[in-house]
Computed example of a mutant assay.
Amino acid sequence: MSVFSVFARLVEHLADLLQPLCHASAAAAAIVLFTALVRLLVHPLSRAAARGQRARAALQPKIAELREKHAKDPQRLQKAVLELHAEEQVSPLSGCLPSLFQLPAFFLLYHLFSSSTIGGETNGLLGHRLFAAPLGGKWADALGDGGIFGGAGLVYLGLFALVAAVAAFNYRRTKRTMADNPVAVSAGGGERVPGLGAVGKVMPFMSFFTLVTVAVVPLAAALYVVTSTAWSAVERAALYR
């Protein structure tokens, strides 16, 4: 039995459990519940990432000194920064781990709701819906079946509104965090690290890119993205306050 067959049975089992409460949208509710379970499993990594970010912020004065000391030797500067992280037992990559560990769950959902057959059998999950929108459909399908204000189109408008609200919350929070904790990026002459200014300008808008993801992936995968994004906004607000 393939991993996709096992995962399909898990989703179907969760949907059966939620059927009395959610009726025709039980499978959609199962995906939301599955996402919450994944985020609970990843939460210890998120807490570790928050501790890592605070530790990296505490190292910024020392890193600024190293930049000034090795301003004319980029290779020596890089080595010195890595040695500092190792000495303080701070991983510069710890913040990436929560996202990396979620990728398999997302791709499982994407494959499961993009395939007409699973394990050689007809994929019955494609018949499930969130209200009027099929879980295996995409926004383009909704536009072709009733338009923006059709039954499926309204489901997507609701998801877009939720994502936009979460993105606006993240935007304001990121701008405030960057203003309160400016990174020490200047060398003795006041020159910025190349490219860092552009990254700083784009970073607050990153959450809005989720709108594109929701529009192009199957609805089931979009539900995962929306639920996980909302969870991240609340989790980060609690961990990084």
Rank of each mutant, 00 (worst) to 15 (best):
Q75M: 12
F149S: 12
L17E: 09
V90Y: 00
V216K: 05
L33V: 15
A238W: 12
A237R: 14
G120R: 13
I63T: 02
L77M: 04
P204E: 04
E88G: 02
S2F: 06
L108Q: 03
I63E: 00
A27H: 05
Q60S: 05
L17D: 07
G119N: 02
G137L: 01
L45H: 09
L211C: 01
A184E: 11
S25V: 01
V3T: 15
S115D: 13
S2D: 12
A30N: 00
R54W: 03
A237G: 11
V225I: 12
T229I: 04
E83Y: 05
G188Y: 10
G52W: 02
N170T: 13
S2G: 10
V225L: 08
T210R: 00
L126E: 03
A198D: 06
R56W: 07
G146L: 04
S5C: 08
D180K: 14
A57E: 05
A36R: 15
E68I: 14
H128E: 10
V226L: 09
H128K: 11
M203K: 14
I118W: 02
G146E: 00
L66G: 03
L103R: 09
S228E: 05
M203H: 11
S46A: 15
N181H: 12
R9I: 05
G137E: 00
Y156R: 04
P194V: 01
L157I: 11
R173I: 13
L154F: 08
S99L: 10
V225M: 11
M203R: 12
H70A: 06
A30G: 02
L77T: 02
E83Q: 09
L41R: 14
L45K: 06
F160H: 00
R9T: 08
A27V: 12
A30Y: 03
T122F: 14
A167G: 04
D16K: 15
V199D: 04
V166E: 03
R192N: 11
A220W: 02
Y156V: 00
F208L: 04
V214K: 05
A179Q: 06
K79S: 13
E88D: 09
P44R: 14
L21W: 15
L154N: 07
S116Y: 13
P74C: 11
V193I: 15
L93K: 04
A28Q: 04
E87C: 07
S115I: 06
A55D: 02
D141C: 04
H111L: 14
F205P: 02
A164Y: 04
R176W: 08
L109E: 01
A220D: 05
A215P: 01
G151I: 04
V166K: 00
H70M: 06
R39S: 12
G195Q: 08
R129Q: 09
G127L: 10
A26V: 09
D141L: 01
V183S: 07
D145K: 09
S91W: 03
L17I: 15
V32E: 05
F113P: 01
E121W: 10
A187R: 10
I118Y: 01
R39G: 08
F169Y: 14
E83A: 10
L211A: 01
V155M: 05
A30E: 00
